[in-house]
Amino acid sequence: MKINGVAIEDTFAEAFPMKATRILITARNETWAEHAARAMTGFATSVIACGCEAGIERRLRPGETPDGRPGIAVLLFTMSNKELIKQVQNRVGQCVLTAPTSACFAGLDADAGTPIALGKNLRYFGDGHQIAKKLGTRRFWRVPVMDGEFLCEETTYVTKAIGGGNFLILARDQDAALAASERAIAAMQKVPGVIMPFPGGVVRSGSKVGSKYKALPASTNHLYCPTLKGAVASALSDDVGAVLEIVIDGLDEASIDEATRVGIRAACRGRNHGVLRISAGNYGGSLGPFHFKLRKILR
């Protein structure tokens, strides 16, 4: 199978079940909403060491937010409910509560899953001056802060999700791989329900399970490192000079399918793109229950 001259390998991305929630952050303007969202989703590239994987899902117009202000939807993914509770509390408390003019709301409906605390515990920052407001079935907390009030919904909801969807862009050099990745990310950012948690959505340090060093659970994916082509049984042909990976976390399989499809098509777009092959990372299919088969998705 080829797209614009790029070979699509007959392989699949292997992904895992995760827990996720969506949180809406609003502020006086887009700039401050983005400051809060960037801070909240910072250092959240991988559950291996960050506790969660998080990212900006999309920007929200004023008409789409509960308070009629510009906003940003962020998605947080963890391996367990318990960790998600901790991550939401810490990240909202340190990054959204602290951001001038911000407010914070649940981005999933109550029927999406189980409730967890959003502002429920953060309200105590109000030191007794906080005000509860129950509007219909939703409960909000108004916490006095130095620029006015921080409005935060009491709970958000956890849903089952999928982490670890991915594809690899094998290109003739670093420039070509980077340009293709940027095209892919720009297209994938328009897909709802997914985030690409790594810096700029792209990861260069693809990993394999295990290491020669006992303390490390993962190490560099040496078979895809172009500088080792002469040293190991490389998976790369001679013409491949750089490989970049795009990792996708999504709320469901359909979202990851769509992100993969538009991402690969965008990566292969244009003339002289320098992209040679598209592949995907897996562990032989024995570890993750979700298999995203590239050729099936692109058919």
Binding site: G68, F140, R142, G148, E149
Partner: peptide, 16 residues
Amino acid sequence: NFELMFVPVFARHVGE
């Protein structure tokens, strides 16, 4: 005098 974010959220609820 303040712009309280509770007010627009409340207004949206009342609008229902």
